[in-house]
């Protein structure tokens, strides 16, 4: 597959959920609690894209195909955009930008704290994603900083797990995928050191 084609696929993966969301919004298909539907949908999309971002490195290691490295920043920024939208949808559509309410929810609900902490960790990663910043930082510092993506994803999975009631199928899948990616990363680092 051509690299440009792959980049186009990543573009579609990042943007088509948005088209679907707008379509449902337009036709009033978001159910009895539209705010909740938007919050859930943006969160799921963001988490899937975040795990996909992390998966791009091992995919490159295994296949040696450069497309994964070329498109990694692109999909990572899509993940960040969706998770930011998730938080904004929650604050705006669900909590009406009512800061006392938002603060109250943060105090009362542990999963809100996990989610927001994960999102905050992603902000420096998004800010240091332009090539110029990366060069200015130096590869070592940049790579060290960007390992935070594992912590952010861990907080994201924890957020998903804690808010779930009884049916742990999808949080379980997310946790298994993240753990597999962590194991791969550790084994890879260990082999590299040998």
């Amino acid at each position: 597959m051509g690299v440009m084609l792959f980049r186009l696929l990543v573009l579609l993966a990042g943007s088509l959920p948005g088209a679907w969301l707008l379509y449902q919004w337009w036709w009033g298909d978001l159910g009895p609690v539209p705010a909740e539907s938007v919050v859930h949908m943006t969160g799921r999309t963001g988490l899937v894209l975040l795990l996909a971002t992390i998966a791009f490195s091992p995919a490159f290691r295994l296949t040696r195909w450069v497309g994964f490295m070329v498109a990694r920043r692109q999909i990572g920024l899509w993940a960040f955009a969706w998770l930011l939208l998730h938080a904004l949808a929650w604050m705006g559509l669900d909590q009406y930008w009512d800061w006392p309410w938002i603060r109250r929810e943060m105090v009362d609900l542990p999963y809100v704290r996990f989610g927001l902490a994960g999102l905050l960790l992603l902000i420096p990663l998004a800010l240091t994603s332009p090539a110029a910043v990366r060069h200015a930082m130096g590869a070592r510092a940049w790579h060290w900083l960007h390992r935070l993506v594992y912590v952010a994803a861990g907080l994201g999975v924890m957020h998903f797990w804690v808010l779930t009631r009884a049916d742990y199928l999808w949080p379980g899948v997310a946790l298994a995928v993240l753990m597999a990616l962590c194991v791969f990363r550790l084994v890879d680092a260990w082999r590299y050191r040998q």
């Binding site: 609690v33 009406y96 309410w101 009362d108 609900l109 542990p110 999963y111 808010l163």
Partner: peptide, 19 residues
């Protein structure tokens, strides 16, 4: 008496905005 993972002090009335 809260649920261990969320508060029971307020509720979303379906069809209304806010809590």
């Amino acid at each position: 008496v809260d649920h261990p993972r969320w508060t029971q002090a307020r509720e979303r009335r379906i069809g209304e905005s806010g809590r």
